[in-house]
Amino acid sequence: MHILDIQNVRKSFGDNEVLKDISLTVDKGEVVSVIGPSGSGKSTFLRCATLLETMDSGTLQYMGETVASMEGDKIVYTKDLKKVRGYFGLVFQNFNLFPHYSVLKNITDAPISVQKRDPKEVKETALQLLGSMGLADKAGAYPCQLSGGQKQRVSIVRALAMKPEILFFDEPTSALDPELTGEVLKVIKQLTEQQMTMVIVTHEMAFAHAISDRVIFMDKGVIVEQGTPQELFEGTKQERTRQFLQNYQR
């Protein structure tokens, strides 16, 4: 059973076809990086997988449960999306923390009021996660009092507190000053050591190289190439991949 199984995704905005038949499966403990130039469709792909966008066509399964399937040429989403949302977490580029909640409340509110978990247990989990990310003293702070790197770490804790099977990252360091990206990447690396299943859309090539089990290169709405970091970064056979990577190394 795959954690995520998404097949034949198509998505257009008006006349612009952003995703042209994209498929991906992710298994437990796998870390998959998605790279590609801006406008390649990688963020849209992530948003389709996390139900922020509706696919035009395609199928989607989490944990073997069907979320979206095709009936003829019409896509049908399951009614019980609430349960499905419990399977995944998403870390946004712009954090999207709730400004009126303290750090602790940002993390604990959804587990308590959406998942109906025991408040005491949730709070302990949250504090422990914050501690493991060096934010123990920030539980009572408000998002506006944090640096960008701290905000992103809090938003990672917020996603983790939901106990997801898989965690998506949408360019988690792109909104950060360069000197702050390190602390966030360190935390993500920490998660790989805990066997967290992750899909990371990123522009940090070295980072993707270092932590991924698999790297996917997307361009113009299609998956051009995928393989181990070594296969992609060191021995790509594809001209487009090579060009893209060259631009990044300069």
Partner: peptide, 18 residues
């Protein structure tokens, strides 16, 4: 209010009313 607030709430499983 930034659309990201709705998206974050959406992903965390909050219903429309919540």
């Amino acid at each position: 209010i930034d659309n990201g607030q709705y998206e974050a709430a959406h992903v965390l499983g909050y219903g429309k009313a919540q």
